[in-house]
Design a protein around this nucleic acid. Structure first.
Lengths: 217, 217
DNA sequence: GCGCGATTACCTCCTAAGGGGTAGGCGGCG
DNA sequence: CGCCGCCTACCCCTTAGGAGGTAATCGCGC
């Protein structure tokens, strides 16, 4: 308990790092030992410096925070990793936690609260923004299988129709495309929505587009 | 030239303000006279303090930076206004410049460069991130049908709602999010679909997601 | 002042979408 | 063989979405 926690900071915004640095300099329990401005740099530095806690920006150019998180865990980094982000996007939160993050803080929190959460994280506590707890709770309730897992529960016909939805087609157009009745299309849509746990074709379309995009990158 | 430029800072992230503050404190030519954490506050404060230059975050909750910019210009604020943002979105840049911004800087620039640009802005120069000059140039060159130009025909409210559609939200949820009637949301959706030449929100959602993805990369 | 565009909100009308059920045909599998 | 999952197609029903119009308010520019 004598020595301060060794902190590493990963963010591609120099100004934001400055802000955090200033904030942490006031806290004797924290010692900044490393800074990285990209995911690649971060993974390497994390292995070299072996910090106690890593603050990781989710939204970075190139290798994003989630990728970096996974790469670190894959490389055997055991530090506590707290995500820092502007986004309170549902899927992001859940994906990060699943990928082994020890916290998820929003950048627009009060600096004092951030400091408090980070300190708590060094003591083994999970650092989650208050605003996110209910999102997390509802996400945990349903066994949301993100990505390929969820897709694999779909039949080929359902998957095919999901792709057409992701092209923006209506049920009628899909029916014409596949040469089946639009009533049948509605059945498939109904089923795939249920499997995906979504409430509208728009959700499904958006999700699918993002899915395809992130896979091809 | 004897007295320093009076600076006002608008950002809903306290940490980011801290970073900027620290940066500016090292520069005798700049004097921080006001801080705001929301658009509404910013407009009021700008009228009261009459600063020489305003640094305005584009991505804020509630009233966003573009709205704030327009409101300030509408209120007769004559200060030089420089947008600060993480987004190098095509349409945003063009829209801000058109709306009377005197600069557009990206938050992930080098602090030294930001400082230099801000100082230049106080001397009447246009402050534009190097990365953006070519975006701007191409935006001016071609009235790009499929991208920024189409988007720029939308009002800020319509654009805001389009973004929510691209998150998969229903009209009802959008209404709740923006605290307006769902009947009003339907009006905006109707208008933006007409402007985009699309026949359903699904088309718009898919298009928007792809748009955002390809422009932010 | 007047008009105009933006935002808000309502109206009607029609269609699209989605949840529930039933059911026939088909192919695989124990 | 029977059972099951998939695809097909319809029934019912309710809600969501989108097209058209009217209108009040506000701020801006002429």
């Amino acid at each position: 308990m004598s020595s301060p926690a060794r902190v590493m900071m990963v963010d591609d915004h120099p100004l934001f790092r400055k802000g955090l640095m200033q904030l942490f300099s006031l806290e004797p329990g924290l010692e900044l030992v490393a800074e990285a401005s990209s995911g690649e740099e971060a993974v390497q530095l994390a292995e070299e410096c072996d910090p106690d806690i890593i603050l990781l920006d989710l939204n970075m150019r190139g290798m994003d925070g989630l990728d970096t998180l996974r790469a670190m865990r894959a490389a055997g980094v055991t530090a506590r990793i707290v995500m820092l982000t502007v986004s309170d996007n549902n899927a992001d939160v859940v994906a990060c936690i699943r990928a082994g993050a020890d916290g998820y803080l929003l950048k627009d929190m009060d600096p004092e609260d951030i400091l408090e959460q980070v300190l708590a994280a060094t003591h083994g506590k999970m650092a989650i923004s208050q605003r996110l707890t209910e999102i997390l709770a509802s996400a945990l309730r349903k066994p949301d299988k993100t990505g390929a897992d969820t897709l694999s529960t779909l039949t080929s016909r359902e998957y095919q129709i999901l792709q057409l939805i992701a092209d923006g087609l209506s049920n009628k157009l899909i029916a014409r495309e596949l040469d089946i009745s639009d009533a049948t299309v509605k059945v498939h849509v109904k089923h795939l929505l249920k499997k995906l746990g979504m409430r509208s074709r728009v959700e499904a379309a958006v999700w699918m587009v993002n899915q395809k995009r992130s896979e091809s990158t």
